[in-house]
């Protein structure tokens, strides 16, 4: 009589069983942390994070303002506004970290109110490409500061499509889009209207599909400050060099 209940084959299969269990454990544990079960969960996660981000952004700009005043005070305390502070302010302004005012143009783009069901509904919407083209034309026309619905365009700003909205910086914007650009208003207007892509939005698209697209010169315009963070992780300045 063979008294052992373990046979070599049984032992091998039990090892395989343990392996399988461990593999499925690995997979599910990664899954649970990475993916909430339902789309609705995901949506609420996104909402939560967005409101968190909004709070943090507010706090960030608050702190930045505080820092500005402290710096200014410190400079005034020491009697002179050092050239350092002035330089800092100048750099900050050109980087888009402070709100600026000046003359320029205001452009309003909006989706069409009525959609002809026979046509492609996409033709009746303002797309990220339209926005990019207009913004690009404005920069080409010498715009010094641009914001879209209060989102300042800085050197790292992406403009991309995110479902039914357009993502600028990390804010989701919906129609209508108000673009404020500071610069020589005449040059800005003519560049916006003559750019091969942007002119389509103001011309044929507007008349054909009923998109809203208007451009107006404004004497005194305010362009918002960039509210996101600007902390490069990969880029570092070249040692000692300006250029």
């Amino acid at each position: 009589m063979n008294d052992r209940i373990y046979r070599p084959a049984l032992v091998v299969v039990v090892v395989v069983l343990g392996f399988l269990v461990a593999v499925s454990f690995n997979t599910t544990s990664r899954l649970v942390t990475a993916r909430p079960q339902r789309v609705s969960d995901l949506v609420s996660v996104v909402r939560d994070m967005e409101s968190q981000r909004a709070e943090l952004q507010d706090r960030y700009s608050e702190l930045r303002e505080k820092m500005d005043t402290l710096e200014r005070n410190a400079a005034e305390d020491s009697g002179v506004r050092s050239s350092f502070t002035q330089e800092l302010e100048r750099v900050r302004q050109s980087a888009g970290l402070s709100a600026v005012v000046g003359p320029g143009v205001k452009i309003v783009l909006a989706d069409a109110h009525e959609v002809d069901p026979d046509n492609d509904p996409n033709d009746y919407l303002i797309h990220d490409s339209d926005l990019t083209a207009v913004v690009n034309a404005l920069f080409a026309g010498g715009a010094e500061a641009i914001d879209v619905n209060g989102e300042r365009l800085v050197s790292t700003t992406p403009i991309r499509c995110a479902g039914t909205t357009i993502l600028v910086n990390s804010a989701r914007l919906g129609s209508p889009y108000t673009i404020s650009a500071i610069g020589d208003s005449g040059a800005l207007e003519s560049f916006a209207l003559s750019d091969p892509v942007a002119s389509l939005v103001f011309g044929p698209y507007k008349t054909q599909y009923g998109l809203e697209a208007s451009i107006s010169r404004v004497d005194e315009l305010r362009v918002a400050a960039y509210r996101g963070s600007m902390r490069p992780r990969f880029a570092s300045a070249t040692p000692g060099g300006e250029s």
Binding site: Y6, V11, V16, L17, G18, F19, L20, A22, V23, N26
Partner: peptide, 21 residues
């Protein structure tokens, strides 16, 4: 005992290699 050890061996192998599907 041998079977329990075999199971533990399998689980350890699987966790150490951290293979996922």
């Amino acid at each position: 005992l041998v079977l329990a050890l075999a199971l533990a061996l399998g689980v350890t192998l699987g966790l150490l290699t951290s293979i996922t599907v």
